[in-house]
Computed example of a mutant assay.
Amino acid sequence: MSRTMLITGATGSVSSALLKALEGADVDVRALVRDESRADGPREHDAEVFVGDLDDARSLPAAFAGVQDVWLLTPNGPRAPEHNMNAVWAARQAGVERIVRLSVVGAAHDAPNRSGRLHALSDRETERCGMRWTILRPHWFMQNLLNEAGDVSATGAFSLNLASARIGMIDVRDIAECAARVLLDDPDRHHGETYTLTGPRSLTFDEVAGQLSLALGRPVAYLPVSDDARRKTLLGVGVPTWIVDMLEEYAQAYATGWGDFTTDTVAGLLGHPPRDLADFVRDHAAAFTSADTN
């Protein structure tokens, strides 16, 4: 009998890629969305859409009813553990068999950033949920670079407060394919496992600029800036203060070498190496190219 999977955070980058990775699999896929107006994306991947919000426990039972497997992704924010709690409770009440949870790299009670500490609380709850569970802890997303595409396109440069940090960044598509592999395998195979997912090598942002230069056929520069300068930029475009504080904490940790590592976990799960930065840049080159240079 086909299993039913519920994908939370269904309109975000990782869950959208997961829905694509699950296309054609012998499973019934549901997608939880907060806003009905954004349901078209999940429906394009053959998912049955349920409207609900992890912030509102009363909105969840219908989506979880009859589900065997839950992909649990909570948005970053100070209430993330509450959102995880609501989902775990709804899963338990519905008789769900397995939770596969998206955490963050380095999640721990003593992580140097609030996101890592909050995710550690939710990881621990998931480990004690009474269901089968697997936790994925991915490194810095290559797709974060798309936030700098406008500047690269307009000025040939991008600015981050990451100094000379070296990071084992990963393509979101590899995270999604690992999640799909876990969800499609026998529930016992990955039970109790926590997987730290990285790309194939640790990179500086000067090396990122070099790869962009090669792919675009024109010079691209990385311009390190101070925490204060980055904060002013992010607040100026409407990023919430809590998120700006969180990103600053990550940047400070990465600048000390905290993110300078890789694992072979992706290759172990998928049977092939993760995508390199060159693959990401080639596939997304159009995003870094202004209309007048296409």
Rank of each mutant, 00 (worst) to 15 (best):
P78Q: 11
A21I: 02
P138L: 05
V266F: 00
L216E: 10
D186E: 13
N113W: 11
E48P: 02
Y195W: 13
S202P: 05
N147H: 12
T241C: 02
T4N: 04
A278I: 03
A251I: 10
G12R: 04
E48C: 01
T126G: 08
E125K: 01
V172C: 00
E127A: 14
H83W: 05
G95L: 11
Q211N: 10
D53T: 02
F158N: 12
G24S: 09
R34A: 08
A21Q: 00
E44R: 14
V220M: 06
W89L: 13
R98A: 02
T263R: 11
E82S: 11
P240A: 05
S202L: 04
F50C: 00
A154N: 01
S59L: 01
R282A: 15
P240I: 04
T204H: 03
Y195K: 02
S213M: 08
V281E: 00
T233C: 03
V239E: 12
G9L: 01
R189W: 00
P78A: 11
D28F: 06
P187L: 07
I135K: 11
Q68P: 03
A267Q: 14
H109G: 01
G236P: 14
G106C: 07
A221M: 02
R166W: 02
C178V: 11
A63G: 00
H45T: 09
T265W: 11
Q211P: 02
A163Q: 10
I7C: 08
S164W: 00
N294V: 15
G41M: 13
H272L: 06
E125T: 09
E249N: 15
L223G: 09
F261C: 04
S16P: 01
D151Y: 12
A10S: 14
T241W: 00
R201M: 11
R30W: 06
A108R: 02
R201Y: 11
E207G: 06
T256N: 08
A94Q: 09
Y222N: 06
I243T: 07
A180V: 07
M246Q: 13
R43M: 12
R38Y: 06
G257C: 02
G199N: 10
V100E: 03
S103G: 08
L214G: 14
T263L: 08
G271K: 14
D151T: 15
A179G: 03
H191A: 15
W258G: 01
E127M: 15
G106W: 05
R189E: 14
Q252R: 15
V96S: 03
H139K: 03
G9R: 08
A107Y: 02
A63Y: 04
R230M: 14
K20I: 05
P240H: 05
S13D: 00
D40R: 09
I135Q: 05
E125N: 10
R201A: 15
T155K: 10
C129Y: 12
W89C: 04
T8A: 06
L184H: 01
A286D: 12
F288H: 12
L214F: 07
F50V: 01
E248N: 14
A165F: 05
I170S: 09
G199M: 06
D228N: 12
N76T: 08
V51W: 03
A57R: 09
G95C: 12
F141Y: 15
F50K: 06
D46I: 01
G106K: 04
N84A: 13
M169R: 14
S15W: 02
A287E: 09
A253K: 08
A39G: 13
W71P: 00
G9W: 04
L72N: 07
L214R: 15
E23T: 11
P112T: 13
S226M: 03
G52R: 06
P42Y: 08
V14R: 02
